[in-house]
Design a protein around this nucleic acid. Structure first.
Length: 1049
RNA sequence: GGGCCCGUGGCUCAGGUGGUAGAGCGCACGGCUGAUAACCGUGAGGCCCUGGGUUCGAAUCCCAGCGGGCCCA
């Protein structure tokens, strides 16, 4: 089938729907994959999006980056692995489901609906969202294995995770320990660092006096150590006070009391108040002093403990009192101190954040609610020194936004601290884009990493595969489902026995004769996705896929994943396989709203991809997101900027419409072009050079993941080179009839350029490229590939002609200068000029003007192009320099001036330049002038205008000769007839008959151009006289009135 | 308190191996008319965050601030 004339306007939504259907109906994705099956592998691992709702713009951006890169790699001849992944377990879904079911606590989950129902709801919820999100991704044209994704709740996937833990156990990296960890009292579970968000929060800020048991100075016994805290609820668990052994501590007397605190902070605490420093000691002096717990009347348990001042290197002087309240049950550092000095780890708070019986008076209260009561009690006893509030950063549970607390609990850990060095050395093997993402940011994160709390006291997750014996200390870590089946006491395991609650019922026999029961916890979800590298390949159950694809060539995610997926993969990778699972990482940014704020539901500034697609289509969204800025920087989403991209797409489409219109009209068949029947001009060679230069840039940019450079380069090419220049240059040639080699040369070039452009755009804008490909290439050539995405990436460096490109740049400048000159002189471009003169001292400019003079002639509408180093007709006037000559010559000045005016300026200038002196003969004397005695002034001849450009000047002769007038008039007439054709809505190819009724003067002027005019307006004949055509219009050209009538032939 | 990134016309962003500041949008003015729900030209508009330093020369390199973002404590 020949090329079809394209739809006049670009309608992205229609095209995209059509193309997506085409892909599905013809299985294009699978066919494209098969096509490259035997080529070198390029493995990619999809960071699994979490299935808790609809995708947002950031998720879309993420997948668009992946899709573009992978389509590009595929076209470059790689066999690509691009399995989609889904993160499905964990607290976020549990929360949503709790909300849907109206459940408020763990207790309600267990008693009201039961764990099994709850788990099933969570699974359903994940499956529904997965389906919905898949559809959303497909709408933006993302090509992945949607039919065969990896899903974290898949038992086959889960057992890879179990295997990973077994490896950790074998290496002795899996430990159970009592530690102080971050805890969410609402979710009643441990949280990993990655699950904590920091926000500003108001908290009490109180200074408390702890009474010293053996006062040293105060005779009345009122001697205290002063501490500061923002968490009064941790005071019931206070066990010690830490001071820095090296710092200076003061005994400060105010009224009748004495306080011990760091000297450096005395001023900031007491300020204007009158105080007296009685004594200064080193912190070490205070060690071992005993104090009384300020609330031991409320908490009788506290009477059992001894409270001491201890040394602590972690004490700082930035805030507080330099005497640090230490509660080993509620702070990681406090815990370490506690262990070091053998303090009891007293933690009178339960999982829900309620004080236990041991907390005496406060038992049953929620810790944060107890703050005011504790403060009041301190005040009653006279131990409260000062009370205020502070606004500071505080951690919150990332899902339910409850402020976290620190609790000492028994948890399972991965000993990251022991493999940190190995992780750092693996990190060095990874290529990061940008490099600082890995070398600085991620490295810093790993260096500060602590052991990873992996147990969660929840339901919807991968059960921890650890069974421990009731009777002895033996534990078993199971590494696969088969191992479970082999060892289990039950032998009829069916259905999903891997998830809770079924797995909880499975017991194993212990060598000691006892029964082993499973640790009831589930795993931190970050482990789920962390193991994706091998779990998605079902390793070690399956080996072949693993050997083929692991480790991954490329991953890309947002910078939040530094602490998330980049980290969890590296950690579990080192544990399980002693290596990094990925080799190259692109860390991309976040999408922000127009004001640069993070998009979030609470701010109501979320933009959904659908909204953009409805307005602009997926291709424009894709291009925009890749074009707006550097991928690793945050992207401000600005609706107005989409208009720019949309404009570019429209112009591209217009070029396509222009091309197909004429190619269809002429039945152009690109397959029949041979070197013999086409003829190329300089501008053809130029655009071919340009498209190959652009291809070179785009290739390099896409290889380096510089999507912004690729898109900018393409944008510039489409607008500047193709639309604004090349199409303009070849317009005239498309109007020629029949198989003119010159016209076919233009068609052939345009066709080649479009084909390359479509290919290059395919990874970025896959729909519109496919649409154009079908019409221009596939329909024309039955041998061609079924889809544009099956094409090979290709360009030719031999076709790049840098000299020609730079010459064309010069010529564009010249033509634009010419247009400017005409503009100033109010001389219409439609009217030809007899000559323009390009003047430059740069030989390259003159060469360019000469070699591309035909282009200049056409575009500047001139009969001749002359070049010179200076403008020959420039008149030079020589004037006396009054400053120097005035004093020297006095009354002779006017005579000298007159003489200078008489003589030829050019000759004088030359004389002066060669001899450095000029003799002027007056009637009575000869006067000698030095170079500084004269000034030169140039004057353009009449009818010449000039304009400057970068490399020189353009002079335009605007003298109107009879020939020029004649041609101008005929062009004016053509313009009016064309206008009428358009009024009549005639097809481009329709022929017409024209009758012109005008003065004989005008008729005589245009008559010589009859054939030219007839050709331009597609008329067989233009006759003069009475009008009787079907459409008549009155016109005025300059001062001549006329009427024109036309009718369809 | 620490780590990383960013700060360039009104807006969104290029430039970043040191050599006279760029684009698009917007604004003003002018032009074109068979790609036309377009297009083109011209113009105005910048102490390239601030202050030091290196240098003949700094938007670019170094140091110190200030402001914004992300991550952590």
């Amino acid at each position: 089938m020949p090329i079809q004339e394209a739809e006049k306007s670009y309608q992205p939504q229609t095209i995209e729907e059509k193309i997506q259907n085409f892909w599905i109906e013809n299985q294009i994705y699978n066919k494209t994959k098969l096509l490259r099956e035997d080529q070198p592998t390029y493995s990619f691992l999809d960071g699994p999006p979490y299935c808790s709702g609809r995708i947002h713009l950031g998720t879309a951006w993420n997948k668009i980056i992946k899709d573009t890169h992978l389509r590009f790699k595929s076209m470059n001849g790689f066999n690509i692995r691009r399995q989609a992944g889904w993160d499905t377990h964990g607290l976020p879904i549990e929360h949503k489901v709790e909300g849907l079911l109206g459940l408020k606590s763990k207790k309600e989950i267990e008693t009201k609906i039961g764990i099994e129902n709850f788990i099933n709801k969570c699974r359903e919820f994940a499956i529904e969202n997965k389906a919905m999100m898949t559809e959303q991704f497909q709408k933006i044209g993302i090509w992945m294995d949607w039919d065969d994704p990896y899903v974290t709740f898949d038992p086959k996937y889960m057992e890879s995770c179990w295997w990973t833990l077994k490896q950790a156990h074998k290496k002795d990296l899996l430990v159970n320990d009592l530690r102080v960890i971050t805890w969410c009292p609402r979710c009643e579970t441990a949280l990993a660092l990655a699950e904590i968000d920091y926000e500003n929060k108001d908290d009490p800020s109180i200074y408390v006096k702890f009474p010293l048991k053996n006062p040293e100075i105060a005779e009345n016994g009122k001697e205290f150590v002063m501490i500061w805290t923002t968490t009064p609820w941790t005071l019931p668990a206070n066990m010690a006070v830490c001071v820095h052994p090296e710092f200076d501590y003061a005994y400060v007397k105010i009224k009748d009391e004495v306080y011990v605190m760091a000297e450096a902070l005395v001023d900031s605490l007491f300020g204007e108040e009158k105080y007296e420093i009685l004594k200064i000691v080193k912190g070490s002096y205070l060690e071992g002093k005993e104090y009384l717990h300020p609330l031991n009347q409320e908490i009788s348990k506290q009477k059992e403990f001894k409270h001491l001042i201890l040394p602590g290197e972690h004490v700082t002087l930035t805030e507080g009192t330099g005497c640090v309240h230490t509660a080993p049950g509620h702070g990681p550092e406090d815990f370490e101190i506690g262990k070091e000095y053998g303090l009891p780890i007293f933690c009178p708070v339960d999982d829900a954040g309620l004080f236990k019986e041991e907390a005496g008076k406060y038992a049953g209260q929620f810790v944060k609610d107890a703050d005011p009561f504790i403060i009041a009690d301190l005040d009653v006893h006279g131990f409260l020194f000062k009370e205020g509030t502070i606004n500071h950063r505080y951690g919150f549970c990332w899902r339910c936004k409850t402020p976290i607390i620190y609790l000492a609990t028994q948890q399972w850990f991965l000993k990251i601290t022991e493999i940190k060095d190995q992780m750092l050395s693996e990190l060095d093997k990874v290529e990061w884009v940008p490099s600082w993402a890995g070398e600085s940011r991620f490295r810093n994160w790993i260096e500060n990493a602590r052991d990873w709390t992996i147990s969660r006291q929840r339901y919807w997750g991968i059960p921890i595969p650890i069974w421990s014996c009731d009777d002895c200390d033996e534990i078993t870590v199971l590494g696969s489902v088969n191992e479970l089946k082999e060892k289990a006491n039950e032998n009829n395991l069916q259905g999903d026995f891997i998830h809770r609650p079924h797995v909880d019922d499975i017991t194993l026999p212990c060598a000691c004769g006892g029964i082993m029961k499973r640790t009831p916890d589930v795993l931190d979800v970050w482990i789920d996705s962390g193991v994706a590298g091998w779990a998605s390949l079902y390793y070690p159950q399956k080996k072949d896929l693993f050997e083929k694809w692991f480790p991954y060539d490329f991953i890309t995610e947002g910078h939040d994943q530094t602490r998330g997926w980049f980290y969890s993969q590296l950690g579990t990778g080192v544990i399980a396989l002693d290596k990094t699972p990925y080799q190259k990482v692109l860390m991309h940014g976040f999408t922000l709203d127009e004001d640069g704020r993070k998009m979030s539901k609470s701010l109501g500034n979320v933009v959904e991809p659908e909204e953009v697609i409805e307005n602009y289509g997926a291709d424009i969204l894709r291009f925009y997101l890749l074009w707006a800025n550097k991928p690793w920087e945050d992207l401000k989403f600005v609706w107005d900027e989409l208009k720019n991209v949309s404009k570019m797409f429209n112009i591209w489409w217009n070029v396509y419409v222009f091309s197909t219109t004429y190619m269809a009209l002429d039945n152009f068949n690109p397959l029949q072009c041979t070197p013999e029947n086409i003829q190329l001009r300089d501008e053809d060679r130029w655009i071919l050079s340009r498209i190959n230069s652009v291809a070179q840039e785009v290739t390099e940019a896409l290889n380096n993941l510089f999507f912004h450079k690729a898109t900018r380069s393409l944008n510039h090419f489409i607008l500047e080179d193709l639309s604004r220049w090349y199409v303009r240059l070849i317009r005239g040639r498309t109007w020629v009839e029949k198989d003119d080699p010159d016209k076919l040369g233009a068609y052939h070039t345009l066709y080649t350029v479009l084909e390359m452009l479509i290919t290059m755009m395919a990874p970025i804008a896959p729909h519109i490229s496919e649409e154009m490909y079908h019409n221009l290439i596939k329909e024309v050539n039955p041998q061609s590939k079924e889809s544009v995405h099956m094409l090979d990436w290709n360009y030719s460096e031999e076709l790049i002609d840098e000299k020609l490109e730079s010459q064309m740049d010069v010529v564009r400048d010249i033509i634009e200068a010419g247009a400017r000159g005409r503009d100033v002189a109010r001389y219409k471009l439609r009217w030809p000029v007899s000559e323009i003169i390009v003047v430059s001292e740069d030989q390259n400019v003159l060469k360019a003007a000469k070699s591309l003079q035909k282009v200049i002639m056409e575009q500047a509408n001139t009969k001749k192009v002359l070049t010179d180093q200076e403008f020959p007709e420039l008149k030079i006037n020589v004037l006396p320099n009054m400053k120097t000559l005035g004093p020297k010559l006095r009354q002779d000045v006017p005579r000298v001036a007159g003489e200078l005016r008489k003589q030829d300026g050019k000759t004088i200038k030359q004389e002066m330049e060669t001899h450095g002196i000029l003799k002027i003969e007056l009637e009575d004397k000869i006067i000698e002038l030095n170079p500084e005695d004269v000034v030169y002034e140039t004057e353009l001849p009449e009818d010449v205008v000039s304009a400057e450009f970068d490399g020189g000047s353009v002079f335009i002769n605007t003298q109107i000769t009879p020939e020029i007038l004649s041609e101008s008039m005929s062009r004016e007439l053509i313009r009016r007839i064309q206008d009428m054709r358009k009024d009549m809505d005639l097809d481009v190819e329709s022929n017409i008959e024209v009758e012109v009724n005008c003065s004989t003067l005008l008729q005589d002027l245009v008559q010589p151009h009859h054939d030219f005019m007839a050709h331009e307006v597609r008329a067989q004949k233009i006759t003069f006289g009475e009008n009787k055509g079907e459409y008549t219009k009155e016109w005025k050209i300059e001062d001549e009135n006329l009427s024109v009538s036309i009718k369809k032939a």
